[in-house]
Design a protein around this nucleic acid. Structure first.
Lengths: 305, 305
DNA sequence: GACATTATTTACTGGTAGAGAATGGTGCGA
DNA sequence: TCGCACCATTCTCTACCAGTAAATAATGTC
């Protein structure tokens, strides 16, 4: 027996004081009404409605039962209704995890405009370069580099490609020489971004040939911005997303090397739990990310040139 | 989809934080759990639970929904529980319709004892010689004479047989003669109980012969007690339940006639709406009636002798 | 007194809820 | 590090049940 429909049948019958009318209202045949009431009574072991073919009236038990049932049914209906606005308009709190550096250099400036576009939305943005467990920690969405991409039941949406560039301060190159081939890097102080998937081995490609260099160095750090600071200070060379050193290269504070080699690219993904029933708040933030990253694409791609 | 089980599944999953554990608790297979949640989400168009194979967490919407659903589910559970004591122990209000005279002469004296036996029970006893519509007027039980017995969907339980006796005051018989045969009644002032089914035609049987006499008289009244008053006053003769005139006959205030003829009997029934799921309050009152009428039977049957 | 309406019963059917097996994925412990 | 155990999901299949239709019984109305 489907008790929920039985309860709704009971409620309608009680309120309309008629089996037939309740059937018409609910789109059910008279027998269906009868059976539902009879089954409900059998389930409870209590007679709820006294009825002849012509007349019906709630028993005392029926009246008591109706009161509680009505209350419960209304609460359940309210539960459904409360989700209605949520599933159409963005609202509530959006919990997002994003890598520190990407956010600070690329995204955070645009966040206020995004939030002002959706006044009912709150944003809880966690800056963390770790690969967070999105489900366990209750995030709605995470921005990840391809290094960290786990191939689970999550959905990944590509946002942007971040080409890398090998660079150092002019002073460093003057002192230690400018590498001409990837293998020159073996003898060089390489600053490593420890959270990268390719922290210890750097790849270079040219003319279909791939060189994989196990690099070494005295400084390993978990923030690209710290890497940049070390580069600026002339401490060593590093392979770093172009984006982060764009202005340094333009201003001559840093210089690139091995420009004729293609190097690793980090693809940036938005990762979220499911494609079905995607909440509007996630949907709009995703759209915002796509829009934002595509807007900046040309400037980024132009930078290494 | 059975939404009630889906909601219960959702609730258990949310509270136990595990699909499998919820399945074990509810006696359902893991696939059943999955499907219920998926269907519930499809129905709402909202993702309630983010899940990988290893971990799961409510979404914000899920948390909001759970709160309301829990509330509704509890209300419905309470509705069932509230009926539990009612369906086992007599309680609440018992609405009974009974004929005035039968009650006053036979029953009402025992009512207080009955009520003190069931302290949680209230009795609303309507004394009315009309044939009431038991369902329309919301009675739990009615006491009826066989005259009024409608053959509907109601249940009738035989309580007692009330033999009648033809009688009048000695003064009346002295003045107008004592009838020797039923047909003598045609010339006699017959007092009629108007609510009886045999008010205008009185039947007498003897040796397999039946005499049906269309009687006449100047006084018709809707209470047997008024008939008795008229008899005592020597106004005429009447056919009246032995019970009502027992003491009068014993004391010689009234005298019977046509004692060698069998006359009509009124069978007393308890009538109630249904045999299934008979409420305890009705059950105990019915038992009380049966007990009470069977206790008095011998004295009643002895009276006409 | 014929008709219309009502609740119920019976027999039947289509949809579906649940089990079982298999798959892909993940954490824990040896 | 590998393997084991567990978990959620998908697919397929079956059994059951909810609802309909037609027939019945009862009752109020014109």
């Amino acid at each position: 027996m489907d008790r929920l429909t039985a309860l709704q049948v009971f409620r309608h019958v009680a309120e309309l004081n008629s089996f037939a009318e309740a059937g018409r209202r609910l789109g059910l045949s008279p027998p269906a009404i009868s059976k539902n009431i009879a089954e409900l009574e059998a389930h409870l072991g209590v007679r709820l409605i006294n009825r002849t073919t012509r007349r019906m009236a709630l028993t005392e038990e029926g009246r008591i039962y109706l009161e509680h049932v009505t209350h419960g049914l209304d609460a359940l209906a309210r539960a459904d209704q409360i989700l209605c606005p949520i599933k159409t308009a963005p609202s509530g709190t959006l919990r997002v995890s994003a890598p520190m550096t990407v956010t600070l250099t690329w995204l955070s400036a645009a966040i206020p405009e995004f939030l002002s576009r959706y006044p009912d939305l709150k944003l809880d943005l966690h800056l963390d370069d770790r690969r967070v467990d999105i489900v366990r920690e209750g995030f709605d969405l995470a921005i990840r580099g391809s290094d960290n991409l786990e191939d689970s039941s999550l959905v990944a949406r590509k946002l942007a490609v971040m080409p890398h560039v090998l660079c150092a301060a002019p002073s460093y190159f003057e002192k230690h020489g400018r590498p001409k081939t990837p293998s020159d890097l073996k003898a060089v102080n390489c600053i490593r971004f420890s959270l990268s998937g390719h922290a210890d081995i750097w790849e270079f490609r040219k003319d279909g040939r791939t060189e994989r260099i196990a690099i070494d160095g005295r400084y390993s750090v978990s923030s690209s911005l710290a890497v940049r600071d070390a580069l600026r200070a002339g401490f060593g060379v590093s392979l770093i997303p172009c984006l982060y050193v764009e202005s340094d290269l333009n201003a001559g504070r840093l210089q690139s090397a091995l420009d004729d080699w293609n190097t690793v690219e980090t693809t940036l993904y938005a990762v979220y739990p499911a494609r079905q029933h995607l909440a509007p708040k996630i949907r709009v933030f995703l759209d915002f990310l796509i829009e934002e990253f595509s807007r900046n694409k040309e400037s980024v791609h132009a930078s290494p040139a």
